[in-house]
Amino acid sequence: ENVVSAPMPGKVLRVLVRVGDRVRVGQGLLVLEAMKMENEIPSPRDGVVKRILVKEGEIVDTGQPKIELG
């Protein structure tokens, strides 16, 4: 899985990584606000952040790609 998608609709509060960052499985990639709760979205695997496809403040839909890992 190279693309991390939104598990639920919500607002991107914070992006916790930058392009080029090495990430580990379970590491937080971003914080999504859904139903007035903050949810940290974890990396599904070890890898390197290739692209960030969302911006802080953006509203995302379920299944929308957010971060691409290499």
Rank of each mutant, 00 (worst) to 15 (best):
V23M: 00
V48N: 04
R24N: 10
M35W: 11
D46L: 04
K36V: 06
P9R: 14
I52G: 02
I59V: 11
P42L: 14
N39K: 13
L32V: 10
V49W: 00
V25F: 12
I59Q: 11
A34L: 10
V15K: 02
S43T: 04
V31R: 03
V23D: 01
K50E: 09
T62D: 08
P44I: 05
L29D: 00
G70M: 14
I67L: 09
K55E: 11
I52P: 03
V17P: 00
P9Q: 11
V48A: 04
I52F: 01
P42Q: 13
K36G: 15
R51W: 07
V17Q: 00
R24M: 11
V12R: 00
V25W: 10
L32Y: 09
V54R: 02
K36S: 14
L13V: 12
V19L: 08
N39G: 05
V54D: 01
V49H: 00
L53P: 02
V4P: 04
E56H: 06
K66W: 15
M37I: 12
G47Y: 02
E58G: 05
K55S: 12
P7S: 13
G63H: 09
I59P: 05
I59Y: 14
E38I: 12
V60P: 02
K11S: 03
L30S: 00
K66P: 07
M35T: 08
P42G: 10
K55N: 08
V25H: 10
V19F: 03
M37L: 10
V17C: 08
Q27P: 01
K11C: 09
R18N: 11
G26N: 07
N39A: 12
E58H: 06
V48D: 03
I67H: 03
V60M: 04
V12W: 00
G47K: 01
V12T: 02
G63Y: 08
M35Q: 12
P42Y: 12
V48L: 09
M8I: 09
L69D: 01
V17F: 00
P9G: 13
V15R: 00
E38A: 10
V60L: 06
D61E: 14
K36N: 15
G26T: 03
S5V: 14
S5T: 13
G10L: 05
P65W: 10
V19Q: 08
K66V: 15
T62V: 13
E38M: 11
D61T: 15
V3A: 07
G26L: 04
E33K: 08
D21Y: 05
E56F: 06
R51N: 10
K55A: 11
E33S: 09
P65Y: 07
G70Y: 15
V48I: 13
L32T: 02
V3G: 05
V4T: 05
D21L: 07
S5K: 13
L53F: 14
R14G: 03
K66D: 07
L53S: 03
Q27D: 09
E38L: 12
P9V: 09
L30Y: 08
N2M: 14
R14V: 08
V3T: 11
R24V: 13
V49P: 02
G57K: 03
V3Q: 07
E1D: 13
K11D: 01
K50F: 11
K50I: 14
G26S: 05
G20M: 05
K50N: 09
E68V: 15
P7D: 11
G26M: 05
G10E: 03
V3S: 06
V19E: 10
M8L: 09
L30H: 00
V4I: 13
A34Y: 15
V49K: 00
N39L: 15
P42R: 14
V4E: 03
M37T: 12
P44F: 07
E38G: 05
K66A: 15
L16A: 01
D61Y: 15
G20I: 03
K66T: 15
L13I: 13
A34N: 12
R51S: 10
R18P: 02
V23R: 00
G70S: 13
I41E: 02
R24H: 12
G20W: 05
V17I: 07
G57I: 04
A6M: 12
G28C: 15
K36M: 13
S43E: 02
I59G: 04
N39R: 14
M8K: 06
V12G: 00
L13T: 08
V49M: 00
P7C: 12
M37K: 12
P7H: 11
